[in-house]
Design a protein around this nucleic acid. Structure first.
Lengths: 180, 180
DNA sequence: CGCGGATTTCAGATATTACTGAAAATACAA
DNA sequence: TTGTATTTTCAGTAATATCTGAAATCCGCG
């Protein structure tokens, strides 16, 4: 007899390994986009989970503390990327992620617009307001560049707004057609 | 007579104050997008500067060390957002930023595609490959979600590729028209 | 060569961000 | 109300990312 116990379910083990790698790597990718690694991991985990998970299950899967899990779960709810669901007969909260990629995309776009694009516009407008009346060469160039940037960001803001308010069924085919 | 010396050039002082705030805030915004604060600040500084700046001038303006300035300047060159220029009669390097917003946008899109979108596609394809043959319910759901994500990211990749290869003069008016 | 200004490197210091874990607060059933 | 499961908070700790500054290297010039 072998000293190595035979793996009782190699398929399941393989699935777990791949899923874990996905969750881990998704976390890494998230940090490149300014998203907290753990938050991206929890999101990834819930996106590919068929059932809703409790805080304890998330803690166990990702080997993280309660406080960490809790905070990041709340943040994800704040972003609108996951929601809490009540299971009958269960006292604790369970969480599930939106699975529809288009909806996920629109949610992220909306939140980024609100949290980062808007503040950029406010900053640029303010810079323009406070330098428009100056006539020093440097100042004029500054104001002019700020205006160009501002117009661009404002345009991006409205385009993203339009897209995120559209139906997937209207935008996607149309994008695909335009892409050829 | 006043103890406060009269400011010799209030306009210039105001301009400096606004520009400094712009540079600082742009750095903050950058970090929300996963960009090193100092790198974003150097980029901001060069974007609104009418003249090219040396490493020493950048160090002075942002009050940072030589090593810090140097590394971030190299990174910006790596992104293609700034370039070094030689001034005749000067031994040291000077740097200037691309000022055209559309070009800046396309450069960032191209680099993000290469550095972050492509790796995501590789990850997703790999996850799909390694789970496609499994028939456990969980695994099937995982593969299916990975496929949906992958298709979406691939589509985003091509759309962004198309846009960043287009002429501003072709895309912008067209976007504006579509937006109304 | 050898000098001197400019650039590059990198080990150690610092700052920032994220995480832990236990205590406090809360919610709910009996 | 009281006991218990669950959630929330947060001070302290850890991990990571960033920065400093001095030494090493590079490079054009006489």
């Amino acid at each position: 007899m072998s000293t190595e116990p035979t793996n009782p379910n190699p398929d399941r083990a393989r699935f777990r390994a791949v899923r874990d790698e996905f969750v881990t790597q998704w976390g890494t990718l998230g940090s490149a986009w300014g998203i907290n690694r753990t938050m991206a991991q929890i999101h990834a985990l819930l996106m590919v989970s068929t059932v809703s998970l409790s805080t304890d299950e998330i803690m166990e899967e990702l080997q993280i503390s309660r406080g960490n899990a809790h905070g990041n779960i709340r943040d994800l709810i704040g972003w609108g990327l996951i929601r809490s669901v009540v299971k009958k007969g269960e006292r604790k909260e369970f969480f599930e992620a939106e699975k529809d990629v288009w909806k996920i995309f629109c949610t992220i776009v909306r939140e980024r617009k609100r949290r980062e694009i808007r503040p950029a516009i406010v900053l640029l407008r303010d810079c323009i307001d406070r330098t428009e009346d100056l006539d020093d060469t440097e100042a004029v160039a500054f104001t002019s560049q700020a205006k160009v940037l501002c117009e661009f960001v404002e345009m991006a803001d409205s385009v993203l707004g339009k897209i995120s308010k559209s139906e997937q069924s209207k935008v996607l085919p149309w994008l695909l057609k335009w892409m050829t």
